[in-house]
Write a protein that binds this DNA or RNA. Structure first.
Lengths: 128, 128
DNA sequence: CTGCATCCACATCGATACTG
DNA sequence: CAGTATCGATGTGGATGCAG
């Protein structure tokens, strides 16, 4: 306990974006719009094909799905299994490291849920 | 345990960005570039003035600091205390709700730290 | 079926200068 | 001291069409 956002940098004067804060780094990996939804569906369905994901992650385009999957794979959060058949068949699944992120998101989930309630009570509607 | 990224929507067919996923919502509040660093410094120094923050959060501009502080205050994560003196004096501090987020970030911290190690071992340098 | 390429809209962020 | 205002750069996400 009690470490929180401690930065490892030995140079306290530098911009933290030039050091390597693990929290910032984590968010740079999964903080974009579609990464978490994709991981969420892969958590529910251990093994999912490209078009299944596209159907389940409502509103995502081919471009963003492809891009997100590729980046998640490069960071070792998901596993891509390609079958050499025609027509092509590709299955995606979470790696252990990908699954390891979910409990943390669980905590974020409950915090966010409280926030939503609070903001509703305050009648804050952000419709410009 | 075990709820993870469960969405509350009663309409499973809709785009999740039209429902209210608490995780997405949480990231919309603290996911931007400077919010977490600011909160981190407010956690270390219970009460901090505007220009102190500007000095400590290396690289931030007046505009981004002002904007971030205002949004954090609107969401009830920080408290703004203004003294009616000349020259102006304003102190910022974390609210209980703001502090409640830190343990979650702690978990993200350790996950991100492991990720950094893994990426280093893979010799992945993203310098185009 | 599983993507990639192109072009474009929009939001975020930064640099600089200025104010009560 | 504690901000605002303006403009411009950059990046992220979207629409559409095409390819292996």
């Amino acid at each position: 306990m009690g470490n929180y956002l401690k930065y490892d940098s030995e140079y306290p004067e530098e911009n933290i974006y030039e050091s390597e804060c693990p929290v910032i780094y984590a968010l740079s990996i999964v903080g974009q719009k579609w990464k978490l939804p994709i991981m969420w569906y892969l958590f529910k369905n251990e093994c999912t094909r490209y078009n299944d994901l596209k159907r389940q992650v409502k509103g995502i385009t081919n471009m963003m799905l492809t891009k997100s999957l590729k980046e998640l794979e490069e960071h070792g959060l998901i596993y891509r299994k390609q079958y050499e058949v025609i027509p092509p068949k590709v299955e995606y699944s979470l790696t252990e490291r990908g699954k390891a992120l979910l409990p943390t998101l669980d905590a974020l989930y409950y915090w966010g849920k409280d926030q939503i309630e609070i903001d509703k009570l305050k009648n804050k509607n952000y419709d410009i």
